[in-house]
Design a protein around this nucleic acid. Structure first.
Lengths: 197, 197, 197, 197
DNA sequence: TACTAATCGAGACGGTACGTCGTGTCTTGAC
DNA sequence: GTCAAGACACGACGTACCGTCTCGATTAGTA
C-alpha cells in the first residue's frame, strides 16, 4: 500500500526540488538520491508532479500556525509575516516558490496548490470570526479578498518583482487593506490602529 | 544581426507556449512550426528561456493601455480589469500565465517578468500623479504597494486558487484597497462603496 | 550482458559498411536498419569503431581455412588465393577492404586488424612446420616475413594500385618469394615447382 | 586561377591531417588554421578528399630519390629503407599513412594513391634496367611484383601488424625476394645471404 | 591611374549526425 | 507483495560540420 522507503523518496524529492528547481528535478535523480530503483517510484506515482504533490502535502515545512493576537490587525500581520518567511527563507522558500511556480504548468501541482490555499484559508476562518465578534470587521467584508490581496502582494513582490521585502512591508500591507490608502488627510490613514473605533 | 525569420520563430514559440505550456514546449517544435532549422534557433538564442524572453518582450499581446478615466478609482479598476483579462482570456492568458509561471524556474524568464512588471509600473505612474493632484491619494501612500495588492490578488485568485473572477471582483478589490475593509458600519459617502460599506 | 538484437545490429553494421564505406556509415543508420534505437547501440559500444570491431570479430566472412596441400608452395598458393578472394570479391571484399582501410584512422579498428592478422598468422603456423619437416623451408627462414611479403603484395596491388589480379598473380608471387627473382639463367627461376628438389 | 593563400591552405590541411587523422580533419579546421574563410576552400575544392589530393601531390615530403648504388640489391635496399622511413618517421609518416589509409574510403584519394605508386614505379624503372644490364635480374622477372612484395610487406608490418621494423627488416625482405626463402641448405655463393642461407 | 575582373570575408542558412539525458515501460528473478 | 536490476523505444537535447548562398569589400592586372 505504500513504498517501503516512502519518506526517503519524498525527502529526496523535496531536497532536489529546492536544489535544482522543478524543471531540473528528475525522477532518476530522486531514485538515486533516495537509494531506490527508478521503477519503484513509477510504481507509486505516475509523474513527477504527482510525486511532488505527495511530497508537498506531507511536508510540514509548509504548514503554519494560526495566530491569535487579540486583534485582526495583529493576526493578519502575523499571518503575512509567516507567508513572507515561507517565500523568502531557504530552504523552505526554495521548495515553496518552485512548487507554486510549477503549479502553473502542471494540473496535478495546480491541484495541490489549490488545496494548499484552500486549507490555509479554512484554518484562517477563526481569525475573521473573532474579528467580526470583536467588531473589527464589517459583516459584508470578504475574508478571501483580504487574504488574496495580502498574500498576492507578497508573492508578486518577492517572485515577480524580485524585490526584497523591507522591514515594514507586511505591516504596511495589512494597514493598507484594513484602512485603505485613499483620502488624504483622513485621520485614519497611515497610523497603527484605532482598531474598532 | 537577426534571424531572417525572427517573427515566424517568435510567433511559433508563443503559439506553442500557449498550446502546450512551458515544459512541453521544445526548441525542435518551434523550429518545425516556424519552418526553420533547429540550429538556426540555437544560433540566436542559447536556451528555451532566452527565446521565450525575446518572444514575450516583442509580443504586443502583453501590452496594455494606461487608462485615464478621471478618477483613481476608475483608473485602477480599468487597470485591474485589463490584468484580469490578460490572465483569464485565451490565448493571451495561456501565454501570460505559462510565462509568468515559468519565470519561477528560470532566471532568464524571471528577468523578463521583472522587466514586465517594472515597465508596467513605470507606465502606471501618471495615474498616481494625477490622483495626488486631484487629492485622491495621500502623499504617504505607496503606489507599488497598491499595485502589488491588486495585481497579486488577481494572480492568486486565478492561478493558485483557480477560482473564476466573478463580475465584481476587480471593483471590490479596488474598493478594498482604496477604502479599507475594516471599520464596520462606517458611513462612507460619495462613492458606490461595496467592500466596507 | 549483451543486447537482445546483437546479431541484427552487427549484421546491419557490416551491410552498411559494405554499401557505404566506413566514413558514410552512421550509428543512426545501423540503428534504423537493425530496428533498434540509437541509444541501445550506444549502451553497448562507445563508438562506431568499437561496434565495427565486434562485428568484424564475429563475422565468419573474414575467416579462412588453413590449407594442407602437401607442399609449402601449394599451401601458400591456396592461402594467397584465399586472401586475394577476400580482397576482391564482393561483398566480403567491401567489408574487408573498408575495415582494414579504416583501421589506419582508428586505434580501435587498428587493434582489430592487428588481431585479425595475428590470428591468421597463428593459424598458419602448421603450414610452415610441415614445410620444415618436409625440408621445404630453411630453419632460418622467417614465416612472418613470407606472409608479409605475399599478403602485402596483394593488398598493395589491389587497393593502392587498383590493378586487377591477373590469373597467375598469386602463383607468381609465391614463386618469387620461395625461389627468388634474382640470378638470371638459374634453372630454378620461373618454373612451376621443383618443390623440395 | 588559384586561391591566393593556396600554400597556407595546403599546409594547414597536411598539418591537421598529421595531427588529427583523416576522419577528424575538417574543412572548417583547415579554413581557420590557414586564416581563410570556409567558402574560399569550397570555391576551389569540392571535398575534403580533393583538397587533400592537391595537398599530397604538392607535398615534397612524399617524394623520394631514386638510388643508384651499383647493385640491384643495394638499390632495392635503399628504396625500401626510404619507404620504411616514410611510413614510420613522423611527421611524414602521419601524413602518408593517414592519406593512404583514407584512400580506401575515398575514390578521389584512391586516385591520388594510385598516381603516387604509379609515379614511384615509373621512376624506379632505371633500377631494374640497370640490374638487367648488369645481369642481376632475369629477363622474365617482374619489377612491379618485386616492388609490390617489398612495399606491401612494409605496409603490412607497420600498419596492420603494428610491429616495429627491426633493424634488418628491409635487408631481409630484399634478400628474400631476390634469393627466395625455400631450399634449405642450398649453398648460394656471392652474397651475404640470410633468409635462405 | 582608374577600371574591371577575379577573388575574397562575412554571415546566415538547411541539413545530417553526433553522443547524451531523461522518460516511461517491460521482464526477470530475488526477498 | 514488493522490490532491484537491467534492457528498451522514444523524444529531445545542444553541438559540430557539412555544403550552399548572398552580399559587399578587396585585390590585382590591364587599359
Amino acid at each position: 500500500m505504500a513504498p517501503r522507503k516512502k519518506d526517503d523518496i519524498l525527502n529526496a524529492a523535496l531536497r532536489l526540488l529546492a536544489e535544482k528547481g522543478y524543471e531540473r528535478l528528475t525522477i532518476e535523480g530522486v531514485a538515486e538520491l533516495s537509494g531506490v530503483n527508478k521503477t519503484t517510484i513509477y510504481r507509486w506515482w505516475p509523474s513527477k508532479a504527482a510525486l511532488l504533490g505527495t511530497a508537498l502535502v506531507e511536508a510540514q515545512e509548509l504548514g503554519f500556525d494560526v495566530p491569535d493576537t487579540g486583534s485582526l490587525r495583529g493576526d493578519l500581520h502575523a499571518l503575512l509575516d509567516g507567508l513572507a518567511w515561507l517565500l523568502t527563507t531557504p530552504p523552505a522558500a526554495d521548495i515553496a516558490v518552485a512548487a507554486l511556480g510549477a503549479a502553473v504548468n502542471s494540473p496535478e501541482l495546480a491541484e495541490a496548490a489549490k488545496g494548499f490555499f484552500a486549507d490555509r484559508f479554512a484554518r484562517e476562518q477563526p481569525i475573521f470570526e473573532r474579528a467580526r465578534e470583536r467588531g473589527e470587521l464589517a459583516d459584508s467584508a470578504d475574508p478571501m479578498m483580504i487574504m488574496d490581496l495580502l498574500a498576492g502582494a507578497v508573492w508578486l513582490r518577492v517572485v515577480f518583482r524580485q524585490l526584497p521585502l523591507d522591514d515594514g512591508f507586511t505591516e504596511r500591507a495589512v494597514n493598507a487593506v484594513l484602512d485603505g490608502v485613499g483620502r488624504p488627510g483622513d485621520p485614519r490613514a497611515g497610523r497603527p490602529a484605532r482598531a474598532g473605533g
